[in-house]
Nucleic acid binder design. Structure first.
Length: 489
RNA sequence: GCCCCCAUCGUCUAGAGGCCUAGGACGCCACCCUUUCAAGGUGGAGAUCAGGGGUUCGAAUCCCCUUGGGGGCACCA
C-alpha cells in the first residue's frame, strides 16, 4: 500500500487538508503502508515557499510523519519516486501530454478566454450545463494549420471518452458517473502549465500510489481522473472520499466562515494531541463510546470502512473541552514546558514550574495562561491599576467591608514569619482574622483577592499569596488601602 | 440548470432487522463540593431516528419516492 497527501502551497495548512492528511496517515500506518508527501505547486502564481513551510511545519507539529517527500520546507526530497514537487516534474507532464496528443486522446485548443466566456454565458442563459462545446476538437486540418501559422499559443484538452465510469469507493461504495455529461477539459494551459486533474493522475501513477484518500469535494472529479488514467494506460488506484468538515451553516469549511489555518489554532494554544484527536472524530469513530485517543491509539484503531459519509461541523466548544482534557492529563513538568512560549522569558526561566498548579485545571488553551498569571510577574502598581475601589467590595458588601478586611489582613499577614508564608498557614490565619473581624470568610477573602491578583476571578487566593511572598502581598494590600482611602466609606 | 453524494438530540456520535420505551460525549439547566473561577461529582431537559410509502412476524437499521442539505461542473487546487 502506498498512500499520499498532496497539499497545495497556495495557503497555510488548512484544517481540511490536515484532517485528510491525518486519515491518509492513519490508513498508511495502520496497514503498514508507505506514506508520501507531494507538494502540488503547479499553480506557480499562487504557490509560495512560505506556505510550503507552514504546511510542513504544522504537519510535523501535529505529529504526522511521512516516508517520502520533502521533510523540511525547501529541503531535499527523500525517497525513490522524486521529485516530490510538481514544479520539478514539468518534463514528465509534457511528455505524457504529448503521448495523449499523439494517440488522439487529447487535442490542441485555440479558443480564447473571451470566446470560452461567451459560450459559457450563452449556456447559462439557455439553462444548459456549462461545459466546453468541443469546437477545437473537430477542426479541419486547414483550420488547425491556420491557427498554428498564427503562432497563437494553444491549450491542450482531453477528449473525454463517452462512457459510464464506475468505481468502488472505499467509503461510499459503488459510484457511477456518465462522462458524456462532461466537457473536454483543459489539461495543459496555453502557457504550458499542466493542470491539476492531469498532474494528479500522472503523479499518482509515477509514485505508484495505490490508495487515493481525499475530500468528498473530489468525488465528482474522480471520473475525470479515471478516464485520464485509462487513456494513459495507468493502473487504477482505489479511491476513498472522506466527508467534508463543515462551517456552522453546513457548507464546506472555509476561511470566510471559520478559522481554517492549523497555525491559528496552534497560536491560540491548542495541543496537537487534542487537534488530532478532535479531527479524527470528525467523520470517524471506533464504534465504541471511547473518545480520547492518542495518535498511536488512533493508528491502531482506525479503519477506513468506519468512516462516515456525512460531513461534520467543526465544533469549537468540543475542541475546547478536549484540549482541557489533554492539558489536565499533562504532568506539571510537561505543562510547564508547553507553557514556556506564552510566558515572559524571565519567568519561564525561573519560577514557571511553581505557577503550573495554579492554572492547570483552569486552562482551556495554553494561550489563556498569561491572562490568569500576569499578576505574578507584573509590578504591584500595574496590578493595582487593573481595578478600582468599588471592585474591592465583596459581592454583597461595601467598600467599608473591603477596608476592614484589608486592615485585618495587613495586620495578620505582617505577623507571619516570611518562612511560614505558605498556603495552609495563610488560610488558617486568614480565617481566624475574618472571624475576629466578624466577617464571613468569602466576604473577607474577596477584597484581598482583588488586591493581590487585580481581578475578581483568579487562581486560588492562598496559593497566589504564597507565590508572591509576604512583602509583595503586603505591598499590594497597602496599595488597595490607598485606593480605599480615596473613597469615602 | 445538470451530475453526484449525504440525512440519528443544537453539535460530534453509538447503532450494520428484534438487546432501542434510541446509548455516550460537548454544550445547556439544576444541585453537591468550594475563598472566586475552574476542575470534579450527581441529576435533568434535549432526537416520534427528515417525511411518506413499501419489504418483514418485527425496521433507526433493507428498498422506493419526496423533501432538505452539501459537493462538483475553471486555461484554481
Amino acid at each position: 500500500m502506498r498512500v499520499r497527501m498532496a497539499p497545495s502551497p497556495t495557503g497555510p495548512l488548512h484544517i481540511g487538508t490536515a484532517r485528510a492528511s491525518l486519515y491518509n496517515y492513519l490508513t498508511a500506518r495502520h496497514e503498514g503502508g508507505t506514506y508520501v508527501l507531494r507538494i502540488e505547486d503547479t499553480d506557480v502564481a499562487r504557490s509560495t515557499a512560505e506556505y510550503e513551510r507552514d504546511i510542513i511545519d504544522n504537519l510535523h507539529w501535529l505529529g504526522i510523519s511521512w516516508d517520502e517527500g520533502p521533510q523540511v520546507a525547501g529541503g531535499e526530497d527523500v525517497g525513490p519516486y522524486g521529485p516530490y514537487r510538481q514544479s520539478e516534474r514539468l518534463e514528465r507532464y509534457a511528455a505524457e501530454a504529448d503521448r495523449l496528443l499523439a494517440a488522439g486522446a487529447a487535442y490542441r485548443c485555440w479558443c480564447t478566454p473571451d470566446e470560452l466566456d461567451a459560450v459559457r454565458r450563452a449556456q447559462e442563459a439557455a439553462k444548459e450545463p456549462p461545459r466546453y462545446n468541443g469546437r477545437c476538437r473537430s477542426l479541419t486540418d486547414a483550420e488547425r494549420a491556420a491557427f498554428e501559422a498564427e503562432g497563437r499559443p494553444a491549450a491542450i484538452r482531453f477528449a473525454v471518452p463517452p462512457e459510464t465510469i464506475r468505481f468502488d469507493d472505499l467509503v461510499r461504495g459503488e459510484v457511477e458517473f456518465d462522462n458524456r455529461l462532461l466537457g473536454d477539459f483543459v489539461i495543459v494551459r496555453a502557457d504550458g502549465a499542466p493542470l491539476y486533474h492531469f498532474v494528479v493522475v500522472v503523479d499518482d501513477e509515477a509514485m505508484e500510489i495505490t490508495h487515493v484518500i481525499r475530500g468528498e469535494d473530489h468525488l465528482s472529479n474522480t471520473p475525470k481522473h479515471i478516464a485520464l488514467l485509462r487513456a494513459l494506460g495507468y493502473r487504477e488506484p482505489r479511491f476513498g472520499h472522506i466527508p467534508l468538515i463543515l462551517n456552522p451553516d453546513r457548507s464546506k469549511m472555509s476561511k470566510r466562515k471559520s478559522q481554517t489555518a492549523v497555525s491559528a489554532y496552534r497560536a491560540e494554544g491548542y495541543l496537537p494531541e487534542a487537534m488530532v484527536n478532535f479531527m479524527a472524530f470528525l467523520g470517524w469513530s471506533p464504534g465504541t463510546e471511547e473518545e480520547v485517543f492518542s495518535l498511536d491509539e488512533l493508528t491502531r484503531r482506525f479503519e477506513l470502512d468506519k468512516v462516515h459519509k456525512g460531513g461534520a461541523i467543526f465544533d469549537r466548544e468540543r475542541l475546547d473541552h478536549l484540549n482541557g482534557v489533554y492539558i489536565r492529563a499533562l504532568s506539571d513538568d510537561a505543562l510547564a514546558l508547553r507553557l514556556r512560549p506564552w510566558i515572559p522569558a524571565a519567568v519561564a526561566d525561573d519560577g514557571l514550574r511553581r505557577l503550573v498548579p495554579l492554572v492547570k485545571e483552569r486552562l482551556v488553551r495554553l494561550g489563556d495562561a498569561p491572562e490568569l498569571l500576569a499578576f505574578v510577574w507584573e509590578p504591584d502598581a500595574t496590578v493595582a491599576g487593573w481595578y478600582d475601589a468599588p471592585t474591592l467590595a465583596p459581592r454583597k458588601g461595601t467598600v467599608e467591608d473591603a477596608r476592614r478586611a484589608h486592615d485585618a489582613a495587613r495586620d495578620a499577614l505582617a505577623a507571619i514569619d516570611p518562612a511560614d508564608f505558605a498556603a495552609d498557614h495563610l488560610e488558617a490565619t486568614a480565617r481566624a482574622a475574618a472571624e475576629a473581624a466578624g466577617m464571613k470568610a468569602g466576604d473577607f477573602f474577596s477584597p484581598i483577592r482583588v488586591a493581590v491578583t487585580g481581578r475578581t476571578v483568579s487562581p486560588p487566593l492562598f496559593d497566589s499569596l504564597e507565590l508572591l511572598g509576604r512583602d509583595r502581598a503586603l505591598a499590594r494590600i497597602g496599595l488597595a488601602l490607598e485606593k480605599l482611602g480615596a473613597v469615602p466609606a
